[in-house]
Computed example of a mutant assay.
Amino acid sequence: MNQGTPEGDSDLSQRHRRELLRLLLWFTVLFSVGFIAINFSVGKYGLMAIEIAVAVFAVWLLTILPRTPNLRRWALVYMVTLLSGTMFAFASPATSITVFSWILVMPVLTHLLLGRWLGGVLSLFYLVLSASIFCWRFGTTQLMDTPGSIANIVTVTACAYLFSHVYEASRERAEQQLSVMALTDSLTGLANRTQLEQSFSRAVLQRQLPLSLVMIDLDYFKRINDEHGHATGDAVLRIIAQAMREHIRESDLACRLGGEEFCLLLPSTNPQRARRLADRLREDIETLECRHEDAVLKLTASIGVATASNPTDGLDPMLHVADQNLYRAKFAGRNCVVG
């Protein structure tokens, strides 16, 4: 959890893909109805049965889509069903060569719904299968007779695949950056209040108890800003943030709540261990020499600790207890730990 990876990343992807899958399912239902009527009118009952099955599956999936936690799994099932039905249409002697125009949408749909790696592999598999079916149905004579047309199809399909892959890669990077920005303090790189709340809820859900909170407030920090400027104050905050990272485990979380106030979330940590860690951190801060430009600064911190064996009331009550202990440390002369 130590500066953990943002948990909002998958949530953003799920919202994006849930809406896209809903739209595609409605399109599937509407177009399936049209193709069912067309295939029935020309006596292509095998294709009609495939279209009916796909339409029924799409309608059922629409009913569970808003609440399913297994969105990626159902998106994969949907794409395999849709593409397999398309392959059946490709292989059917009753369909014309124009049905192969559907290969152009395969890379786009698979990348958008399944991401660049799973979507890329799945679409590549079906593209190769499509080419194999084409050669099986029409042989090499068709390729030799219309090389320009075949080259156009291959070029456009390759472009669709590459553009879909590049687009999805850039979208994932942008989404990850937004998630990091949403969960991270921009000055120190520590977690912010939002990530603290998420990590706290996760620790409670996973029964990582007892759960401890350590609140740290830098003593007389306002003097640094007043006497040396905010740039020096910001540099000090970054140094303190680094010191906090060095004192915590991978499962812990270091957070900046605002100003000169910080917090540590310590899952599976009893009060004695939390106080020992807090005291080591206090001693480390006391011995630090914070250098910025021509300034060499010494400072101390007051720390409050709170621990709960069953924090069912949420994060705020624990923050309140830790904050009260922090102010007791202030009134006790600062540069000490209470809790």
Rank of each mutant, 00 (worst) to 15 (best):
Q142G: 00
Q142V: 13
Q142M: 15
L143T: 02
L143P: 03
L143I: 13
L143F: 12
M144W: 10
M144V: 05
M144F: 11
M144P: 00
D145L: 12
D145S: 11
D145W: 03
T146S: 14
P147Q: 10
P147H: 11
P147D: 08
S149Y: 10
I150L: 05
I150C: 03
I150Y: 02
I150D: 01
I150M: 13
A151H: 07
A151G: 09
A151W: 10
A151C: 13
N152I: 06
N152M: 11
N152Q: 04
I153V: 14
I153D: 02
I153W: 07
I153M: 13
I153K: 06
V154Y: 01
V154N: 01
T155W: 06
T155V: 09
T155L: 14
V156F: 07
V156Q: 07
V156W: 04
V156N: 01
V156I: 15
T157G: 06
T157W: 04
T157D: 10
T157A: 15
T157K: 04
A158L: 14
C159N: 05
C159V: 14
C159G: 08
C159S: 08
A160C: 15
Y161I: 03
L162F: 05
L162R: 03
F163C: 14
F163R: 02
S164N: 11
H165G: 04
H165I: 01
H165L: 13
H165P: 01
H165W: 15
V166P: 00
V166H: 09
V166Q: 13
V166F: 14
Y167K: 04
E168Q: 15
E168R: 12
E168W: 05
E168F: 06
A169P: 01
A169D: 11
A169T: 13
A169V: 08
S170H: 09
S170E: 12
R171Y: 09
R171T: 07
E172F: 00
E172M: 05
R173Y: 02
R173W: 02
R173I: 08
A174S: 12
A174M: 07
A174E: 14
E175N: 15
E175V: 11
E175T: 13
Q176W: 09
Q176T: 07
Q177N: 09
Q177R: 14
Q177D: 06
L178T: 08
L178H: 08
L178I: 11
L178S: 08
L178A: 12
